[in-house]
């Protein structure tokens, strides 16, 4: 019995270690003082973190990513909320559509999206435009936000809004006072995930933006494909990962994110 318990724990921790290892190595390697990472490292320092914070190029790349992801996730949640309301409350509700929409987004074949969008954009003359990029990011994040918001809304009693109305609230106010506050955990969850998808995206962005809007992942990707990764990239990546981990830990503690996906 004891041995079995230990064995279970061992397997579990091995799998967890595998999940964490790449991120841990990423963060660790950012402390390597050398220009190219090697293990064991010659010397550990904060050098690249200092340079990262001082570099205007990188600052603008991270800023670009942040702006893009913020706008895209706000749009995605706004449209996602409308779509989810229509699909769960409105005349559009229908079981099969709902089921497909609930399953599809997790597999989200980004490459397929990217190839399709790239051609559509070329025809519409949107290629390389920032507006087009925002639109593309909104489109690729939309299915997930619809999924999360639909799951959220389907757990909220539609009678609540009716009750508010019968008590004298106009429709918009009834929504704002009942459904919306109750859907807030879902709204924040989907905003966070859309932000992360958009912020981290390299596939769709490289396909349709070219070099016009240099986001941090695109910069990192081109280094990975080319001469190798700049240690400053490692340092920024490490900081981003650390930030994401904190956010996700909070999200999981507060909103049970893993259950909403």
């Amino acid at each position: 019995m004891r041995l079995k318990t230990v064995l279970w724990a061992a397997i579990t921790f091995a799998v967890l270690a595998y999940l964490i290892a790449p991120i841990a190595v990423l963060i660790y390697s950012a402390f390597d003082d050398g220009k190219f990472f090697r293990f064991p490292p010659r010397e550990l320092s904060l050098r690249w973190f200092r340079e990262a914070l001082a570099s205007p190029e990188y600052r603008s790349a991270v800023l670009n990513s942040t702006i893009l992801a913020t706008i895209a996730s706000v749009l995605s949640v706004a449209f996602g909320l409308m779509a989810a309301l229509g699909l769960t409350r409105g005349p559009l509700r229908s079981r099969p559509i709902v089921e497909i929409l609930l399953l599809a987004p997790l597999t989200l074949p980004l490459v397929v999206w990217a190839i399709a969008l790239m051609q559509i954009y070329a025809r519409l003359g949107l290629s390389g435009s920032v507006g087009g990029l925002i639109l593309a990011h909104t489109i690729i994040t939309l299915p997930l936000s619809v999924r999360i918001l639909m799951a959220t809304l389907s757990n909220i009693d539609p009678n609540l809004e009716d009750a508010a109305r019968s008590l004298g609230a106009r429709p918009l106010r009834a929504f704002a006072r009942t459904t919306l506050p109750l859907a807030m955990p879902g709204v924040l969850t989907s905003a966070a995930f859309c932000f992360l998808i958009s912020f981290n995206d390299v596939v769709v962005t490289t396909f349709i933006a070219g070099a016009s809007w240099m986001t941090f992942p695109v910069r990192m990707y081109s280094q990975l494909r080319g001469q190798g990764v700049d240690p400053i990239t490692l340092a920024i990546g490490a900081m981003i990962v650390a930030l994401i981990l904190v956010i996700v830990a909070l999200g999981e503690a507060r909103f049970k994110w893993s259950r909403r996906l």
Binding site: A163, S166, R170, A174
Partner: peptide, 12 residues
Amino acid sequence: LPAWDRDIGLVF
């Protein structure tokens, strides 16, 4: 008249 102007109480 819309529901919010009717002054009718409803218990669900």
